[in-house]
Simulated scan of single mutants.
Amino acid sequence: MSLLSVEGLGIEFGGVRAVHDVSFNVKPGEIVSVIGPNGAGKTTLFNMISGVYLPGGGKVVLDGEDVTGMAPHLLARRGLSRTFQNLQIFQQMTVLENAIAGYHLQESGHVLSDMFNLPSSRKRARAAAEGAYALLERVRLSRAAEQEAGNLSYGALKRLEIARALALNPRVLLLDEPAAGCNAVETEEIDNLIAEVAKEGVAILLVEHDMKLVMRISNHIVVLDHGEKIAEGDPATVSRNPDVIAAYLGTQAEEATHADS
């Protein structure tokens, strides 16, 4: 059964069709990648799924519930979390504080208890700190917990953003170019982390330009061009699709497929 269903999703900006009639499903533990050339509508699609944009047509279904246009914080409480193409990190805060920030949507305390530092507030703070530190261990950043986030390498910042998204205990995780700007070692670390999360049953929707990474870890690939879906299937099928090659991949997909075979 699909955990996330995108059904005929579309949107226009100023009369220009950005995304049109896109549909696909993501099952628990599955990694589905959305690829396409620049301007294909990938991030716009992510923004509609995650509640940043209100779709002009179609719907988003999360675990059987129509959540189309629902605000991002409400989607997060229902188990859908995301990262962004541009880092959303608090550079002057410590690595641990950034990870703790991911827990704020789970907090159920009252303003007064926080104002007066009541035991319930302190208990929540301890639980958030412990959970955040465990996430940092998971993404191999625990040794940097007390450093300012701005001192981390770009790849480490990418892993920190994933850790913060995982703090919401998502059932569906949207990753927007998690390996962008990373070197080969950093990309492999992110590759392994994504695979680990998927093995735990989290449904992962990925936008990424690194074709070797996409072909290596994806169970299913959706290809967009000019806002429309032109192909979908497993990596081997997509990499040999003539429409995909003509629109975007060229020989990259073939090379990536053969390199990992």
Rank of each mutant, 00 (worst) to 15 (best):
P242K: 11
L224Q: 02
L166I: 10
A156P: 05
A163I: 07
T187P: 10
V60E: 13
L9Y: 04
A144F: 15
V6T: 00
E107N: 15
M1E: 04
A76M: 06
N151Q: 15
I162N: 06
I190M: 12
M215G: 01
T68D: 12
K27A: 12
H258M: 09
D243G: 03
P170W: 09
A167H: 03
V60N: 12
A128M: 04
L206F: 05
E232G: 01
R138G: 03
G201I: 12
E200M: 08
L205Y: 11
D176K: 02
G51L: 06
T257D: 04
L54P: 08
E137H: 10
N241C: 10
G155Q: 08
V223Q: 04
L45I: 02
Q91T: 12
A18D: 09
Q85K: 06
F24R: 08
V111W: 14
T83K: 14
D225S: 11
Y154V: 03
D210P: 02
H209R: 13
V202M: 13
E130R: 14
L168V: 13
Y53Q: 06
N241H: 14
V34R: 03
G109T: 13
S81E: 07
N183P: 01
E189S: 11
V185P: 03
I89S: 00
A132C: 07
E200L: 06
R126Q: 13
R143V: 01
A134R: 08
E228D: 02
I221H: 04
N219H: 08
A101S: 14
G8K: 07
N183M: 04
E137W: 13
G227K: 10
D66F: 03
I204M: 12
D66M: 00
A18S: 07
D225K: 05
D176A: 01
M1A: 01
L118G: 00
V61F: 06
G150S: 11
E130N: 07
G56I: 03
I49R: 07
S121F: 10
L75P: 01
D114T: 02
F13W: 09
A128W: 01
L206H: 04
I100S: 12
L213Q: 07
I162A: 08
G227H: 08
A259L: 09
G102D: 04
R17H: 14
I11R: 15
D243E: 12
N241L: 12
T187G: 13
T257L: 15
D260C: 05
P37C: 07
G29K: 07
L80G: 00
A203K: 06
I217P: 01
P119W: 13
F24W: 10
N183V: 03
A128P: 02
D21H: 14
A129Q: 14
M48V: 01
R164Y: 07
G201F: 09
L175A: 04
H226W: 04
Q147N: 14
E148G: 15
S50Q: 09
G79C: 05
V60S: 09
A184S: 04
E200P: 01
G10S: 03
K158L: 05
V52Y: 13
L213E: 08
A134F: 06
L4P: 03
G8V: 00
L168D: 01
P37F: 05
L87D: 05
R17Y: 09
L135E: 08
L160R: 09
A180Q: 04
V202I: 10
L74Y: 05
G10A: 10
A99E: 12
L4N: 02
E255G: 00
C182Y: 11
R164Q: 10
E232Y: 03
L205Q: 11
